[in-house]
Design a protein around this nucleic acid. Sequence first.
RNA 1: GGGGGAGUAGCUCAGUUGGUUAGAGCGCCUGCUUCACACGCAGGAGGUCCAGGGUUCGAGUCCCUGCUCUCCCACCA
Length: 907
Amino acid sequence: MSGTDIAKAYDPKLVEQRWYQAWLDARAFAGVADPAKAPFCIVIPPPNVTGVLTMGHVLNNTIQDILTRRARQEGKAVLWLPGTDHAGLATQSRVERELKKEGLDRRRMGREAFFQRVVEWRDKHGGIIIEQLKRLGCSCDWSRTVHTLDPAYSRAVLTAFVKLYERGYIYRGKRMVNWCPASQTALSDEEVIPKPQKGSLYHMRYEIVERPGEYIQIATTRPETLMGDTAVAVHPDDPRYANLRGAHVWRPFPRAQIPIIFDTAVDKDFGSGALKVTPAHDKVDFEIGQRHHLPIIEVIDAAGKLNELAGEEFMGLERFKARKLAAQKLNELGLLIKEDPYENNVGFSERADVPIEPRLSEQWFLKYPRIEEAKAAVRDGHIKFWPEHWSKVYLNWLDKIQDWCISRQVWWGHRIPVWYKKGADRNDAQNRHVSLDGPPDPQNWEQDEDSLDTWASSWLWPFATMGWPAPDAKQAQELDFWYPTNDLVTGPDIIFFWVARMIIAGLEFMRPGESLDRRIPFKNVYFTGIIRDKQGRKMSKSLGNSPDPLDLIDQYGADGLRFGTMNSAPQGNDILFDETNVELGRNFCNKLWNAARFRQMQGPTEKNGTIDAILNHFDAGIADADDQAILARLAETLDAVARDFAKYEFNTATQNLYAFFWGDFCDWYLEVAKARSGDEGTLKHVRAVQDLCLRQFLLLLHPFMPFITEELWHGLGFGAEGTFIQNAGAGTGAELLAKLATVGFKPDASAAAEIAGLREFVSQARALKAQFNLAARRDLKFALAANPHQAGTLARHGEKLRRLAGAAEVDLLAANREAPAGAAAVITPLGTLYLDLAGAVDKNAERARLAKEIEKLDKVIAGSEAKLANEAFTAKAPANVIEGARKQLADNQAKREELRRLLEALK
RNA sequence: GGGGGAGUAGCUCAGUUGGUUAGAGCGCCUGCUUCACACGCAGGAGGUCCAGGGUUCGAGUCCCUGCUCUCCCACCA
């Protein structure tokens, strides 16, 4: 911006792209590991490379950008390391959908061809999100962008696998997994979404072998699995079945004897208290089966169809059709007692949205290392969680942690680096080869078909992005410099998926033998809330309730979106998204823009306006209470925002910024400045105060609104050519006051109170005018019966008061002079203010108003009197509280006296 | 079932270690082209701080009980 031809309204489109390009051209975001500076590093939670920006990303990345920009301002060596995630199953599913349209199938294409196809798809659709993050203003070091399937990163992932295998943490096992029959892969517990389903509870009966004609009653929702039953279980304390120890029942089809067993996992109070046990198709049943050494009979195959073990009638039948048929058969055999409607929770595959099938499968598992250390790291405060309460959730999970199934039947990912001797037993470790590059004689081996869970790659993010495990010389120095990283900013929904696992990985792999503080991956974890719509629903594509952040940027500007989002996001709370918040941010940009315009209209600003340069025009002799008050507020705000940063309270920070700039600087100080049109010296001085406020405020605001602050920083001449605002610090309140002291400015503690009084006075005067529908009039005469100690105030601030109140005159009444006849009156901190209406006052209405005010005061005074009359209060309350109460009482009493006098005068 | 979080103005939320008469933005009502800004200015209405106990001289704030909403985990076949 330059000269006087500045647009009336701020147009972010003209500014944002230009500055972002300038930052990129200057490599302003490059992380330089400068040992002379304190390190500050954030690694981005890698978004899905083919994803697009959501409001969740906006929240998350705005916070990260705020932290990194503030750190640069503080003179730290800053690295915000970006990257993307290959999102294994999600991406593979999308490409498979495309293939289906073309009539293709990944199995027929073969692994290599399919992988290549996904690579092409990724390269075509990937990276959009990176460009979108740039639109938001994110100051990542893009030259370091990492993708989880990059060669170096992939080697890190496989290295971790090999190391953990060698250390005995990884094993292959037949275990119950959440099998998705649609995608034909195992899912982690976290990828299974329980949904309430309406179905039936089938009550059936099995005949007791040892007592023909006697039956045991069993309830089940899944009769289609009964062919895989290998026992019936009851609770050992259940008196109804105590006499059945050692007994057996007849499984109706295929007809076979199966034992009655006793296990505490059975709920006595559910149904009849007897449970059919199908170890192959239910997690709990599998565990019971293990305890009782039951055989495992799989009757459902990978596609969710029944197999030959289920019997001829069921073979090939889809599982839900089989359910109907099984019920029908039971009924025909007279074994189905009843079928009740029943609602229960069924686990659904998050991606394919079909009921998962608990299924035994050969999988790779990780037994987590370092669990105790991972707990200690958070419990003992080496890693701080914000808000703190998430640490309970974290510790709770680690207490009940289960082995992690890390293999996925997916091709888009890191293929498990295990080879099996051709034709040999894969479960015999003798027949395996585990290494990064495979066996020397590959013709004799075949590699495991599975790939690793995506989280088994991203859990290495804080160090594998920096060159681990094979850093070159430069990387080694940087890893040493920036690890552990400072802050991690993420959603609490991935506290187990990602955060906990990164902690474990860091402790296991980084700097073996060194202290906990050196091995943890980050020092602070800030958990954002979840952005919801106005009805409190999670934002989702299917609901269509998620606004497109890019539309919002087009409409309101990136700064407006950022500020509005932060302003409405208190720490630890979910955010109900409301576009009016973004509007608030946009409006604030405009306010800032216009305050700068106003300043420029008063005269040119200096080039390279440092604080010292500005202070050349500051005249301590001219400085009055308004200057005192605004500079004190500026100093306060610098410190308040610093405190907010220390506590990660970004919404409090935006509120402090907003209140200072709009409420104090614009609403009061700039208005007052308009009235201080004395000599050239006064003008220069007042401009200097404005410049100080604008300069320090732009610095303080910059992390929240990077574009407009950069624009104004240069437009107002504060920044030298080729420099950026992110490299200048806002400083503390004390530093500002110290600078001011060098030009003879001494803080005056009473100034703030005096200005508060003036503001109240002006407000009262305006209200008085409004009461008589005279708000727009500027030719009215006021008279003030000043309080004794306020007589000088009017003299000092008369010009300002007249201008702000819109008064032609404010007469100072002599102590003994009568108030004008027929005037309306209001009590202000300066004294009683009369508005001369020359008899136009409705006396009855005025009396009613005064009486009402007196009545209100009566109540307050009565409360104060009662409190002060209470000996317990005067004996126990601290002196300053008692003093405050006394003063309040005295003030109110005096005010009431004056009101009574005014009432009397109206008679 | 286990563990969190939250109930304050019509809406979304602040409210420091308990201490004057509980605040902001939006919305609403009234007025205003006042020489930066109508994305603005000015004035105003609007509150049983979920309910009931308790601690205290004093509770929106601390404790207990209950109610409502919400999230996470484990899930009853």
